[in-house]
Nucleic acid binder design. Structure first.
Lengths: 212, 212
DNA sequence: GCCGCGATGTATCGGACCGATACATCGCAC
DNA sequence: GTGCGATGTATCGGTCCGATACATCGCGGC
């Protein structure tokens, strides 16, 4: 999951660890609290070892060989490699069952702008099925085993059931939107500078559903 | 978290691993999918080593020394010890910040029937504060940094914000309920048999809020 | 009669991720 | 001129998951 998110973010612009964490937190704020350095840095090292990202020099090589003492350990900027982009595409393509749990779905959804429409549809439907299953489970418990559970546990189930029903409706809307081609996709993705080299789908224009 | 849930469940009745997992899944179905054996069994061993649970013999000692071959490895039933109950009470009392994240809160809430009212209130308010913070973060992103993010990411944030607002309202209701003494607490907790030895609060009678 | 198969049941292993902790630099307010 | 919060990199122990292995039991189909 972290691997996927990092590769996705670094395609927008090179970043160092701290920045990466902030962006990740902003982008995934709806899903999870904040990713930990204890997983971020090891993952970065792993991705680098695999050749999917590389370190980019911070100061543009004009340093006159001076340091050696004070050992000046500046920030380490990472950028994605061609292999990394390939890897990211591959991770999108093989969206498996783990893509449908809460975190997995959220992270994939956050990068839907870099995902082709067919895969978007597949993921949305997989997620819907999973939530429907959870919903049925909760209904079963609330129906059959209600008297075995205390009032607080029941209230928890009710709240969970409510959230499930709500998410299914949300997913239905998104699926209908995808099918009709009016996906909520925004044109400009990359950072400032106007270079446009991502494989995002053709932008069919802003479409927002109005809330009644 | 798992430790807490196991100690809580075993206070209702002795159980073996498989059963424990099923009950856990039923009770926490609204929170998480299903707990893994890869964490359940090691945790059971840890709790046993700490003296908080013990193995209870499955067949009531009438086995006539026969086995030794076929090695008949039957199910292992665990029951909580007095120290275990103490540990559980202690875990409730020291409900810290980790109690307010999604999983932690859900698990604690599921055992509110074994939690005193003051602690229930403290946990509900802590959770509310945490969700309010997340909500503010999402509002910030949707307000200030909206143009930096693509339409899918924005939609994710909107959905998350909606869920936050809904949960805050839910928590407000629960808090008001607690304050007025009309907590949704059910009298009989333990398994069949009528033994009543838990420290649950006095049952003020079923109180259900009607949905308009 | 026996064969498969799904439910029941215990267990381990590698890997992902978290929370706490440590430590260093920079700018700025007091 | 000094403390302090933001920026920044890094490790360690521990929790939990997912895959996998393996054994038993009851039941229906052939």
């Amino acid at each position: 999951m972290l691997e996927f998110a990092i590769l996705g973010l670094l395609q927008e612009s090179p970043m160092h660890g701290y920045e990466l964490r902030k962006e990740l937190t902003a982008k995934l704020g709806a899903i999870r609290a904040a990713i930990s350095y204890g997983s971020l840095y090891p993952t970065l090292r792993r991705l680098q070892a695999a050749g999917w990202i590389t370190e980019a020099a911070e100061t543009p090589a004009t340093a006159e060989e001076v340091p050696a003492l004070t050992s000046r350990r500046g920030r380490v900027v990472y950028k994605i490699t061609a292999e990394g982009k390939e890897r990211f595409a591959q991770l999108i393509a093989q969206a498996g069952p783990e893509t449908y749990d809460d975190t997995g779905f959220g992270v994939h959804f956050a990068f839907f702008a870099r995902t082709d429409q067919a895969t978007r549809l597949r993921i949305l439907e997989g997620r819907r099925r999973k939530i429907e299953e959870r919903r049925e489970g909760l209904r079963d418990v609330l129906g059959r085993a209600a008297e075995r559970l205390d009032a607080y546990t029941l209230e928890l189930q009710r709240h969970g059931l409510d959230a499930c029903e709500r998410e299914v409706r949300w997913l239905e809307e998104l699926i209908a939107n995808e099918r009709s081609g009016r996906a909520p996709t925004v044109p400009n993705i990359g950072t400032a500078g106007g270079r446009r080299e991502d494989n995002s789908p053709p932008p069919p224009g802003e479409t927002r559903k109005e809330r009644p």
